[in-house]
């Protein structure tokens, strides 16, 4: 079959439409960076923050996560691949035995999770790691 210009156009439009549909609705890197800067007042150095999470989460609806940073007054968690990057922020006090907390989070897809810690002296630290999210097909 010879391809006419009209066919080609239809094909291109179809591909574009398919591409649009397949575009995952996720936070872009700019939004993540903005959230980090708003919280930390700049880009923090990497290191000094523990970010505990499963390497592969069996279900993205409930992913256990733990963060810790010695001397932190607050730790913010961001999910770079969610529709909105914000997840939650822990605030520690003089009563905290250590600056460590755990919770369970929703991840829409495999993505980097970021933890940003604000220290008592005003300095900031950051950790980033990928969590693979299983998209299982089984069981309504």
């Amino acid at each position: 079959m010879q391809m006419t210009r009209r066919d080609l156009f239809a094909l291109a439009a179809g591909l574009a439409a398919a591409g649009l549909i397949r575009m995952p609705a996720h936070a872009d890197e700019a939004k993540v960076e903005a959230a980090i800067k708003e919280f930390a007042g700049g880009m923090p150095e990497t290191g000094g923050v523990e970010l505990g999470a499963p390497e592969i989460a069996e279900n993205g609806n409930t992913v256990p996560i733990e963060v810790a940073a010695a001397g932190a007054t607050s730790i913010m968690i961001l999910a770079s691949g969610n529709p909105n990057p914000g997840v939650g922020t822990f605030h520690f006090t003089a009563m905290s035995a250590e600056s460590r907390a755990s919770t369970r989070i929703r991840l829409a897809q495999t993505q980097d999770v970021v933890a940003v810690a604000k220290m008592a002296d005003g300095s900031t630290k950051m950790a980033r790691r990928e969590i693979k999210v299983t998209i299982g097909g089984c069981g309504g």
Binding site: N82, T89, H91, F92, T93, M95, A101, S102, R106
Partner: peptide, 28 residues
């Protein structure tokens, strides 16, 4: 809060799972 003083707090966004679980530690 402990005896009226804040011991720990958290801001939660919609990305926290249903039936929110929060674990932390204190020294009293």
């Amino acid at each position: 809060t402990y005896n009226g003083e804040t011991a720990f707090s958290m801001d939660l966004e919609p990305a926290i799972s249903a039936n929110p679980y929060i674990e932390f530690s204190v020294k009293l």
